[in-house]
């Protein structure tokens, strides 16, 4: 389902006014993406569902706090979901126990089929492609799977110092490319 930033903004605005129907439409349009975000970080269906619930309860209550400087509506909702999931990961200290790294991330993020952020994403894809492989992979492992530097080290077999500098250098380069 493809939804424009404009449409999401309308629903979010109506949500902030207490419109339950608009909130349900917002949920129907975005919950699949947010559930994927949560599932990637937590890798457990029940926890991912729990985070999704928390995220939408927050979205309902905080809809009025959204403004454009915080990014697109979708980006704002993704952040709410990610922070909630990271909190849960930390509080359960379960990363090492339940993480199944045998299921590799796709090397490239998939094109098309985006909500709201299409242009941003195309640019990000381009900029990500410009990074060295190990820089890109480290950033993806940290972003999608919430892996710490140590866990990325274990996963890739690279020294801790390298992983840290890959992420840092990769992101510096990414910023230069995105803000160019």
């Amino acid at each position: 389902m493809e939804q424009s930033q404009q449409q999401l903004l309308q629903w979010l605005f109506a949500t902030a006014q207490g419109n339950k129907q608009a909130f349900e439409q917002l949920y129907q349009a975005t919950s699949g993406k947010l559930f994927s975000v949560s599932l990637h970080l937590l890798r457990r269906n029940d926890w991912a569902e729990d985070v999704l619930q928390d995220a939408y309860v927050r979205i309902w209550h905080n809809a009025g706090d959204y403004h454009a400087e915080k990014g697109s509506v979708m980006s704002w909702m993704i952040s709410i979901t990610r922070y909630r999931a990271l909190d849960l990961l930390k509080s359960r200290r379960v990363k090492a126990e339940h993480l199944d790294l045998s299921e590799e991330l796709p090397d490239e993020v998939q094109p098309g089929e985006a909500i709201g952020l299409v242009r941003d994403k195309v640019k990000l894809d381009d900029c990500m492609q410009g990074l060295a492989d190990e820089h890109r992979q480290s950033i993806q492992l940290a972003y999608f799977n919430g892996l710490s530097h140590q866990e990325i080290t274990a996963h890739t077999g690279s020294p801790l110092g390298s992983v840290k500098s890959w992420i840092r250098r990769g992101l510096t380069q990414l910023k230069r490319c995105l803000e160019a």
Binding site: M1, S31, G32, K33, S36, E49, G71, S72, P111, K121
Partner: peptide, 24 residues
Amino acid sequence: EQHLNPLAEGLPPTPPNPAVWQRI
């Protein structure tokens, strides 16, 4: 956040169990 969150856009959506909407 605006730089990085578009990464999540590439994830294929996973429809959550309808019970989640009920619980919300």
